[in-house]
Design a protein around this nucleic acid. Sequence first.
DNA 1: CACGGCGCTTGATCCAGATCAGGGCGACTC
DNA 2: GAGTCGCCCTGATCTGGATCAAGCGCCGTG
Lengths: 217, 217
Amino acid sequence: MPDGYDKPTLQALHCLVEHVGPFREGEYLFRANDPFGAIFAVRGGTVKTSVVDTLGREQVLGFYLPGEMVGLNAIHPDHYPCDAIALDSVYLCRFSFPALATLAARIPGIQQQLFRLLSKDIGTASLLAGDFSAEERMAAFLVALADRYAARGFSATAFRLSMPRADIANYLRLAAETVSRVLRRFQDQQLIRVESRDIEFVDAAALRALARNVLHS
Amino acid sequence: MPDGYDKPTLQALHCLVEHVGPFREGEYLFRANDPFGAIFAVRGGTVKTSVVDTLGREQVLGFYLPGEMVGLNAIHPDHYPCDAIALDSVYLCRFSFPALATLAARIPGIQQQLFRLLSKDIGTASLLAGDFSAEERMAAFLVALADRYAARGFSATAFRLSMPRADIANYLRLAAETVSRVLRRFQDQQLIRVESRDIEFVDAAALRALARNVLHS
DNA sequence: CACGGCGCTTGATCCAGATCAGGGCGACTC
DNA sequence: GAGTCGCCCTGATCTGGATCAAGCGCCGTG
């Protein structure tokens, strides 16, 4: 949540927030069909959300970096519609949703912010909905990650992927082999440097050009 | 919006709503980048939303039937992120959003309802995000339409598609030819009967089985 | 009425990416 | 150190759906 609230507002927010964690790699923050009670802000680490279909196969829905909110899509069905899993050591702020909604009714700024967060998620959900090539998807994924890291004050040109290739592939609806091949192609074309999970942008402009149609049209 | 509000609430809602229309086939309700001011409930007809990418190609984002809300995804960027186009004769209720947000702060029921609508859209947006076969997508599309019609009191087993094949194809990220072929295959397999834009379910259970993984895993 | 044009269908070919198969390598255990 | 297990890479083959290319029926228009 952005700063810029006044004293009593911050006070109120402070009361209904609860620090939780650490969760270890592979631990569940919540599971599909758990009753909805709270939304979470990531303080540290990376979270992935996913669903498993009628038997077995996982579908990765998203990754959440420090500063981002998890669980907003649970408000409507009143149950979490997906699993949330720690990809590394994860620390969270837990916001009880009933309390937050009550606060939102008193303080317009909070309500506004919640509306924005929800509305924003609608947009980003449709990001990977288009029929894009593997290159476009991968470029968009990397650029979006870089931008999100940059927004939190980290380097926008070098970062470490906190998820395995298989999760990236699943998220982008590609085969893991394709992810591997596209990354190599990008490196051969001098767009990035790849060293296992470390990514460095070499030609950010070209990457952005590739990603342009995906993010968002 | 569901009924069940008390008198003063209904009164207040009544004040900020405005009937607009008719829009004729092909007319724009709003365009991408128009400043955001209101959300709309469809009273009659069908609306499609779409974006056009950097040059030309359209991407259909959704279809809206009577009783459904258009424009919720505009809250965050504060501009409409897509075009909204009438597919036939369209009648709307226009809700000024600033007024609605103010009202929501006073009346918790309204706020709740808005949260639900927003959260619900996050879920349905990720519906067609999975990597599903043409059959699964098509079945899911038909079943979802039938359910939405049924929820509004229309027949759940026979309805008329208000959009051309090309729009369905675009929405499902398929080629128009594929839509044609899949519909024919469904008819050959005795799942549905197709007569130009009229659809009749013959084996709804089988269709639902096909759609199951898509809606929503 | 003939003429276009558009929406829809059907068949033939093509291709991006899935799938299958195998190999390398770093981390951990015994 | 040898063995094992994940994770990642790379090559060969296969395939679902896109694309290309006609044809067909329907409606509006001159």
